[in-house]
């Protein structure tokens, strides 16, 4: 297996799926001539030409809606948002059109589209460019939400997302594009949506983490191992549909749960997971479920404040120690 970056893994997935299916095309701001704001689409214009790799004006609502319409008529668009912050302009088309079309047409029009791009914090880009929006999108039935944390997951999940017949919100993380990992070279390599991955096995406490929080949680688990606390780290990888079974089974084993997320706490994914665990594994809990989340404030600019707003290893370690009564 080759060791490549998440950026390269995403690029491979796009290229392979575009080779595989003529109906797949790529559209977004700076995806073609500029080679991608984060270089994820590097080289694709050269290979697939202007018809299939399309630079858009800065009109998120317009091109998102155009993508949904193209999907209604049988194409499989991959729409890049330069960051998911800008997808907020397009939410009418994502939520009112893409998520509901199959249902309100009584099953006649499915929307095979992928909206992808970086989500969450970057480095000192302040309030309007640092938002983690997964709980927004995961709220709506009709949409799938995917968040990879490794190069292999990024590739396998993006390929599955493009092949999926439903709208998929595919959320990358700017801070992680350069993270490297082993990736299978097989062109048929895919990872099914809706299946969590146990990134580390353990018995004393479960940590559920996604995207940027996965490497942080793994570091925390290493730290805790030294303190004789064995942590299981679960990456759901897909937020909707959520593989809650894997989480419940782990909690039944460890009796303690910490959920780490970069997003704001209120009405977040961690809140949803805690509710499910409370409903389905209450009798197995030895401590209240503990959330470790981004600060409940807009993202500040100053480096020190930004660091305070994003959960780190220490917060996760402390939370695990708290639920393990150490």
């Amino acid at each position: 297996m080759a060791v490549i970056t998440i950026r390269e893994a995403l690029n491979q997935a796009l290229a392979e799926e575009m080779r595989r299916d003529e109906n797949v095309f790529l559209m977004g701001e700076e995806v073609a001539a500029y080679q991608g704001a984060y270089k994820v689409t590097k080289g694709l214009l050269q290979e697939f030409g202007e018809k299939r790799v399309i630079d858009t004006p800065i009109v998120e609502l317009g091109f998102a809606g155009l993508g949904v319409g193209a999907a209604m008529a049988g194409l499989r668009p991959v729409v890049e948002f330069m960051t998911f912050n800008f997808s907020i302009l397009a939410t009418d088309q994502i939520i009112n059109s893409a998520a509901k079309m199959l249902y309100m047409s009584g099953g006649q029009f499915n929307i095979p589209i992928v909206f992808r791009g970086p989500n969450g914090s970057a480095f000192q880009v302040s309030s309007q460019h640092s938002q983690a929006l997964e709980s927004w999108y995961a709220y709506f039935p009709g949409i799938k939400v995917v968040m990879p944390s490794t190069a292999a997951d990024a590739k396998g999940l993006l390929k599955s997302a493009i092949r999926d017949d439903n709208p998929v919100i595919f959320m990358e993380q700017e801070r992680m594009y350069g993270n490297k990992g082993e990736v299978p070279e097989d062109e048929d390599f895919t990872i099914p949506l809706g299946v969590a991955d146990i990134k580390r096995e353990g018995k004393d406490a479960t940590i559920v983490a996604r995207s940027l929080m996965v490497p942080v949680a793994l570091k925390a688990a290493e730290e805790l191992e030294k303190q004789d606390v064995s942590c299981e780290v679960i990456d759901p990888r897909t937020i909707r549909p959520l593989d809650i079974e894997t989480i419940i089974n782990s909690v039944k084993k460890t009796n303690r749960l910490v959920i780490a997320e970069e997003s704001h706490p209120f009405c977040g994914v961690a809140a949803e997971i805690s509710a499910e665990v409370m409903e389905r594994a209450f009798d197995y809990l030895d401590a209240p479920v503990r959330r470790v989340t981004g600060a409940d404030v807009p993202m500040p600019y100053a480096k020190n404040l930004e660091n305070l707003a994003i959960p780190g290893v220490k917060q996760i370690v402390d939370a695990v120690r708290e639920v393990a009564y150490i």
Binding site: G62, G65, G69, M104, S105
Partner: peptide, 28 residues
């Protein structure tokens, strides 16, 4: 909606169907 006669819907957000129709024609 009626797929058989290419009637791609009534849409209830004012203006919401305009980008969609643009995309349908794009696909054509």
């Amino acid at each position: 909606f009626d797929r058989d006669v290419n009637f791609l819907g009534g849409h209830a957000i004012v203006g919401g169907q305009i980008p969609l129709a643009t995309g349908v024609a794009f696909a054509a």
